[in-house]
């Protein structure tokens, strides 16, 4: 499980996270909401070890391991997965080669044998079905020329391939039409189990209609200022964030 204590982080000397405390237990779905610029994406970047961000204080432990000591690749091997808000296009690297490298590196880390070509293709086929992804997309370069919806589906496909213990969905709903949203959400729900946890970062209630959170947090100005049950998301949808800002100001 994930335990974040008094986490401070900055980029280019500017402090964005100012003391985050968060505990996520196996099987739980947490939603992190908040207005623009509150630090939501920074939190997800810091969790996966993006070198652009500097952690200045605090700790993150994941199943007892100190995350700060782990490289981004080892965090992935430990079972942390981020569905990027803006998935990166990598021309010339095919999805197949990309995923094969990712899956086999994970297996190596876990002292498992590499998958044979046919085992791997079988796995690809199986997981593609989770997000109704076309075979053609799998043969193309990573995200190159994919539509916004296809990119997000591809993120969930990668998540299905890597079977993480903790999935962080960063604004996965942004830019998705209703059908794509449904497919993506269904994919996430299919992959969920009592052992895995999910952090859903979102602006809107919309995605939470499909992926039901157990706990909702509001992030504002680098801190979690409110934590409640799913009803909080509905409240935010109705009233916006101003009342939160006012509460904080008081």
């Amino acid at each position: 499980m994930l335990e974040i204590k008094d986490l401070h982080a900055s980029i280019n000397g500017k402090e964005i996270l100012k003391g985050i405390n968060l505990v996520v237990k196996p099987g739980e779905v947490h939603a992190i909401m908040g207005p623009n610029g509150s630090g939501k994406s920074t939190l997800s970047s810091v969790l996966v070890g993006n070198p652009a961000f500097e952690v200045t204080k605090g700790s993150i432990s994941f199943y007892g391991k100190d995350l700060m000591q782990l490289s981004p690749e080892d965090r992935s091997h430990e079972g942390i997965f981020l569905s990027f808000q803006y998935p990166v296009e990598i021309p010339g690297v095919s999805m197949v080669n990309f995923m094969r490298a990712a899956v086999n590196e994970q297996r190596k880390y876990r002292n498992q044998l590499s998958l044979s070509a046919s085992e791997f293709l079988k796995l690809m086929r199986e997981k593609r079905a989770v997000v109704e992804m076309d075979n053609k997309l799998a043969n193309r370069s990573v995200n190159e020329g994919f539509s916004g919806g296809e990119k997000k589906r591809n993120e969930i496909f990668q998540m299905a391939m890597l079977e993480p213990r903790l999935s962080i969905l960063d604004e996965t709903d942004s830019g998705l039409d209703i059908d794509a949203l449904r497919i993506v959400a269904q994919g996430v729900n299919t992959l969920k189990s009592a052992e895995t946890s999910t952090i859903v970062i979102t602006h809107y209630q919309r995605l939470l209609d499909y992926i039901k959170p157990d706990i909702v947090h509001v992030l504002y100005n680098g801190r979690i200022v409110k934590t409640a049950g799913p009803e909080l998301a509905l409240q935010l949808e109705e009233r916006g964030y101003d009342w939160i800002k006012e509460e904080v100001a008081e």
């Binding site: 981004p72 992935s76 990166v88 990309f98 590196e105 994970q106």
Partner: peptide, 24 residues
Amino acid sequence: TSLFYMRSRGIPEREARLLLMFAF
């Protein structure tokens, strides 16, 4: 950004660099 994306999927930095050079 490509390098980080690949690393976040568990591909070690060295390997990610190779894949990118190869793609190039």
